[in-house]
Amino acid sequence: MPTATLASGAFIKPKPSPYSKEQVIQWLIAIEFDAHSENGRSPGALPPPTVENLFIITRLHLLAFPFETTPIHYSPEHCMDVTPEGLYQRLVVRRNGSFCYGLNGLLFGMLLGLGYRAYAGQARSNSNFGKDQPIYWHTSHMVIFVQPIPDSNVTYLVDDGFGGYGLTKPILLSDEESNVVQGLGPLFKHRLRRAVHPQASTDSPDWVLETINENKDGDQGPRWNQVYTFSETEYFQCDFEAMSHFVSASPPDPKSRFSTLRDLMLLKKHTWLEDEPNVPVADRKLGGYVIIGQTLKRVGAQELEVIREIETEEERIELIKKYFDVDVDQDGIDHVRGRKVALVQA
Score class of each variant (00 low, 15 high):
G293H: 00
A282P: 00
G287K: 01
G293F: 00
I307P: 12
G287H: 02
I307M: 12
H245D: 07
V306K: 07
Y235K: 11
P280F: 02
T233R: 15
R308D: 06
Y289R: 07
Q237K: 02
R316W: 00
V281C: 13
E274D: 14
I310C: 08
I292V: 12
E232W: 02
M265G: 05
D275M: 04
E303V: 03
F236E: 15
E303L: 04
D239P: 04
G293S: 02
V279H: 03
R316K: 14
V281R: 01
L273I: 04
G288N: 01
V306F: 00
R284V: 10
N278K: 03
G300P: 11
R262D: 04
E276A: 13
T271N: 15
V247E: 10
L273W: 00
L273F: 00
E318N: 14
R257A: 14
T312C: 07
L264N: 06
I291K: 00
I320E: 06
V306T: 13
H270K: 08
W272K: 05
F258K: 08
F246A: 09
I292P: 03
R284P: 09
R316I: 05
S259I: 14
L319W: 02
V247L: 13
V306I: 11
I307T: 10
H270E: 12
T233I: 09
S250D: 11
Y235N: 12
T233L: 10
E314I: 01
T271C: 13
V281T: 13
G288L: 00
L264V: 08
L319R: 07
I291A: 02
E314L: 09
D253S: 15
V290S: 05
T295K: 07
A282E: 11
L266R: 14
G293W: 00
